[in-house]
């Protein structure tokens, strides 16, 4: 096993780098898209509500691989060329943002109605009440499930292997098909994924403790 790792260190590290890079991009994109969708979903404005709800319902109910394949095959064929890495990361972002949206929406909805009513009765607009009172309280509720979704995101980034995204899983497939040493290869890959996700788990736990006032 050590031999495999030593021989293919560069490939493993490159794969790990790609996995982290793709996860970071998808995380940032999912936070923004998820937040927008959540705000749309709970918006008092009907058309926005419909857009948000339809988006979430579509993308969380289609397998990640199908969403990703759409960007890998359909977009390059009819719209514009796209690398496997881009297709994979966009697919991952869109898929994950639907789950982020649900988590954020649930967090906002769990803030007691009384907080809304007090803020609105105090003369605040909907957006002021959201910005100053409701959302800051929702964040505390949102963080733990969002942490779980983020760890899932990192693991789901292995979908890049299917679209030649040069991530960790892709490299593992390559190495094992050259060496026929499947067991040690995938064992190493498992450990490398753990190295990425374990600190995330700790970070989330730390944040949870910190946010408890």
């Amino acid at each position: 096993m050590i031999e495999i790792f030593q021989t293919y260190t560069a490939e493993f590290m490159q794969g790990m780098g790609m996995t982290i890079f793709s996860s970071l991009l998808a995380f940032a994109g999912s936070i923004i898209l998820g937040l927008v969708c959540a705000l749309f979903e709970i918006s008092p404005i009907k058309p926005l509500k419909i857009i948000g709800t339809v988006y979430v319902e579509i993308f969380r109910n289609i397998p990640l691989l199908v969403v990703t394949m759409f960007f890998y095959i359909v977009i390059p064929k009819y719209v514009m060329p796209m690398s496997g890495f881009s297709a994979g990361t966009i697919g991952l972002t869109i898929y994950t943002s639907a789950f982020f949206a649900e988590v954020i929406k649930a967090g906002i909805n769990s803030v007691p109605t009384g907080q809304w009513e007090a803020a609105r009765s105090n003369g605040m607009t909907y957006l002021q009440a959201m910005h100053h009172i409701v959302f800051p309280q929702a964040v505390r509720i949102i963080i733990p499930p969002l942490g779980n979704q983020t760890i899932t995101l990192v693991k789901n980034s292995s979908v890049l292997a299917f679209v030649a995204g040069f991530d960790l899983m892709y490299q593992a497939n390559q190495i094992s098909s050259i060496t026929f040493q499947q067991v040690p290869t995938y064992f190493i890959v498992g450990i490398l994924y753990l190295i990425i996700t374990m600190p995330l788990s700790y970070l989330m736990r730390h944040l949870e403790n910190k946010l408890e006032v």
């Binding site: 009384g114 907080q115 009513e117 007090a118 803020a119 009765s121 105090n122 800051p136 309280q137």
Partner: peptide, 16 residues
């Protein structure tokens, strides 16, 4: 609402 305040049964102070 700027000119009409409200006091609630369950206070509803801003928790944050």
């Amino acid at each position: 609402r700027r000119d009409v305040g409200m006091v609630f049964q369950h206070f509803n102070l801003y928790a944050n």
